[in-house]
Design a protein around this nucleic acid. Structure first.
Lengths: 171, 171
DNA sequence: CGATATTAGTTGACATAGCAACTAATCTGT
DNA sequence: ACAGATTAGTTGCTATGTCAACTAATATCG
């Protein structure tokens, strides 16, 4: 039961891949792909957000954000302004082009959710979302609890110039 | 509610990525990565399976199977035998090296499921699995119903005559 | 039988994603 | 103030995954 792959992870992975495929099919006439689409959806909800906030809202790697936004900027769906209060940060804004496809974007997501939820009652859906969120939280909590000897939690030892010892072997 | 990305797809994607990261962390001392690991798990359940069956059991693209098995063969976790009854097919067998890591593999999955399920009661887990399966099924059913294959299928050159009626029995 | 289609598997191209290393700007403690 | 740490963002490398085109073997059906 809980010891087998064939329980939760498998179906999560399957649905994740189905989602990618579905979105890409729906977008195949647009100059947009699935990951850029998801970034737009998040920007619709909070325009003017900076990349870091967007990244953590999506629980994704910041490099993905950098690359996706770069492409969205090139194709004219967003523009970026250097923050006036923080010279490192950009504020990200959607353009008219993005606004124009918003109804279609909403439609695509609505259809997807409708497809997923077919023959499943509302109570189960609500419970599902709740449980998924909680699971995700469990993982995040663990990641915080176990800093993993990573570079995140810098020890205060502050050895002078330890930089050279980075050639760790991965096997 | 159901019209927002922030409902199901988001958490599915987040947990999917967390799963990849978790497995890769657990495996970082092994000559195995997350996707190969999942193939092994499936092979433990059904040794001697052929690639096509394995592929559909995992709901993944067959090219991924080809590449992952190639690597697993190179690192000695599996071997392949040409099927005696079908000259196109391979039967895939796990080796002693794979058997040897099976307990560790089971442990990793058990821990993952335990982590996910922390503070979530068994009934919710059972319901979750059931609902996820059903959702995945909903998507698969749609894919069957909407073959849309005619546009995908490139005409082979010198296709002489069209079938009497479109033969759309593709998956 | 023989033409044609279908199937199992491989490969090339490209999209999606994480990690580590890097730059430049900002923050912190003394 | 200012050195060292941290943060925002970018980039290189690699893994994960899909789609389409391809080869070779097999199935179908006149």
């Amino acid at each position: 039961m809980l010891t087998e792959y064939d329980s939760i992870g498998k179906w999560i992975s399957v649905i994740h891949r189905q989602f990618q495929t579905y979105i890409n099919q729906e977008l195949k006439e647009q100059d947009l792909n699935a990951s850029q689409f998801i970034y737009l959806i998040n920007l619709f909800q909070e325009d003017g957000i900076n990349q870091e906030t967007l990244t953590s809202k999506m629980y994704i790697d910041k490099s993905m954000t950098a690359r996706s936004l770069k492409q969205l900027e090139k194709t004219g769906y967003i523009r970026r302004e250097k923050s006036k209060t923080d010279g490192r940060a950009y504020e990200v804004f959607i353009t008219k082009k993005a606004q124009a496809i918003r109804p279609e974007a909403d439609r695509i997501l609505t259809e997807w959710n409708k497809l997923l939820a077919e023959n499943i009652n509302d109570q189960e859906i609500i419970s599902l979302i709740h449980v998924l969120k909680e699971m995700s939280d469990n993982v995040l909590t663990r990641q915080k609890d176990i800093p993993e000897a990573s570079s995140k939690k810098k020890r205060k030892k502050a050895k002078i110039h330890e930089k050279k010892s980075k050639n760790r072997q991965k096997i």
